[in-house]
Amino acid sequence: MARIAIAGAGVLGRLLAWRLAREGHSVSVFDPADGPQPPVPGRVAAVNERPHAAGFTAAGMLSPLAELDGAEPAVARLGWRSLPLWQAIGRQLANGGAPGLVRTEGSLLLAHGSDRGNAQRTLARLNGVPEAPAPQPLDAAALRALEPALASGLLAWLLPGEGQLLPRETLLALAEQSAGVRWHWNTLVDTVDAGRLRLIGGDTAAADLAIDTRGLGARPEVPLRGVRGEVLWLHAPGVRLLRPVRLLHPRHRVYLVPRPGDRVVVGASEIESEDRSPVSLRSAVELMSAAHSVLPELAEARIDHLETNLRPARADHLPSIEHRPGLLRINGLFRHGWMVAPAVVQDALAAAGLASEGQSPP
């Protein structure tokens, strides 16, 4: 059994804590948040307030094939490896009392007829994961059978095996079901060194292995930049959408993701800025217009709230794992955090000599 100290309680930190505790290790997690619960939806943080984890803002799409529109094949392969891992994790969390967190019933790739050329170029990239099934073209009748509410005349492809999870609920379940983990909330980590975490205020947490998953908080030790993302939540009673939908759009990779309670999350803005201020008018109008163009019944939806956050990105937009004795750093998941996290955690623990036997899903 190893003593493990984790800096950061985002997607990576909670997934690591949950898994390592299940394997019998002594785990402590340090994070500046008030607790494990999600932030209040739509609340704008004060200027001097610590930002919440980017994982709470994300839509939770598990879409490695669709991400090949703008991501490297290496990222898509991590995502494809992560899908069965998420299914296994979802079953474990369901047994602990949190059912329905993960769904893998496929996703849809859509384009308007005027964007046919762009769609064909994107489809040509969707061979970066040879082990994954090929996109299935859908005619009007097949699309209507799968998603009757979508607009007519759309070009459409089903991406089998893709899906989604519920980010807020999954983060909370991972924390609540990490039996034996010691959570140190309202605790800011200054630096992470081999075998110890230095806390703001001068205290030190010693460990056999110190793990840094702080995202942008890991600077300057990890070279990162923040990339702004914006999402909006719509309340759309009676609007039926069963699968995540990605629209090939001239300006954005726009997605629509169904959520419980008649909600639909719309997003995909990607802005080279570390500005955490509220969503801009231009982004909101473009995202809502694109969403309405593929799901006309959203015309009477109500805007619940809008959110912004920053994704930690490296120059190559690829995740990084750094290991040396007593220290493990994992970072740079960019916009792919939920999609690739289980495979990245698996690889990181293997590098640190803490892999489960056979590297099977947890």
Rank of each mutant, 00 (worst) to 15 (best):
A5K: 06
R14C: 05
L15V: 08
L16Q: 05
L20E: 07
S26G: 04
S26M: 10
Q37H: 12
P41W: 10
A53L: 10
A54V: 14
A58M: 14
M61W: 07
S63P: 01
A66P: 01
L68G: 05
E72D: 15
E72V: 11
S82E: 10
P84I: 01
G90S: 01
L93V: 03
G96R: 11
G100V: 11
G106M: 03
L109Q: 12
L109P: 10
S114P: 04
N118C: 00
A119V: 11
T122N: 09
L123P: 10
N127H: 14
P130F: 13
P133N: 00
P133S: 13
A134L: 15
D139G: 14
A142F: 04
L143T: 12
L146K: 13
E147F: 12
E147R: 06
E147M: 10
A149W: 06
G161S: 11
L166H: 06
L172H: 02
Q177M: 14
R182F: 04
L197R: 02
G201R: 06
D203I: 01
A205W: 08
D212G: 09
D212H: 03
R219I: 11
P220S: 11
P220Q: 01
E221N: 02
V222R: 02
H235Q: 14
P237Y: 07
G238C: 00
L241D: 05
L241R: 07
L247K: 08
L248E: 02
V254F: 09
P258K: 10
G261A: 14
G261L: 14
V264D: 05
G267Y: 11
G267C: 04
A268R: 02
I271M: 00
I271A: 03
R282G: 11
A290Q: 04
A291I: 04
V294N: 06
L295C: 12
E297Q: 14
L298C: 08
A299N: 11
T308W: 12
L310I: 02
G337T: 02
A343D: 01
V344D: 07
Q346L: 14
D347Q: 15
L349D: 09
G353Q: 07
S360F: 00
